[in-house]
Amino acid sequence: MDAMTLLTLLICAGILFGAISAVSMGNVVSAVIAAGLTSLFAAVTYVILSAPDVAMTEASIGSGLSTAIFLYAINRTRRQEREKND
């Protein structure tokens, strides 16, 4: 087993760990961050699989913009809840 295989195994373990955290974490914000981490690790596997274009897209869209949109949506739903309680 060479170094590349070991690295790939480690990153894939990171992906599965991130995904399991994303569905099982109690806090929604933590879950969204874990999903973003999963995307970031997936971008690294695309580099290993020699697809740099896909890696760039995944890193900028999958883990960047998508996480930001999730966090804004959570913020909006929370803010209205707080107003309702006031």
């Binding site: 740099p52 274009d53 890696a55 760039m56 897209t57 900028s60 869209i61 960047g64 913009l65 930001a68």
Partner: peptide, 16 residues
Amino acid sequence: PGGGFQGGAVIASASL
């Protein structure tokens, strides 16, 4: 590597 979609995403990240 790169192109319209990636560049557009970087521009949107700049707005973010």
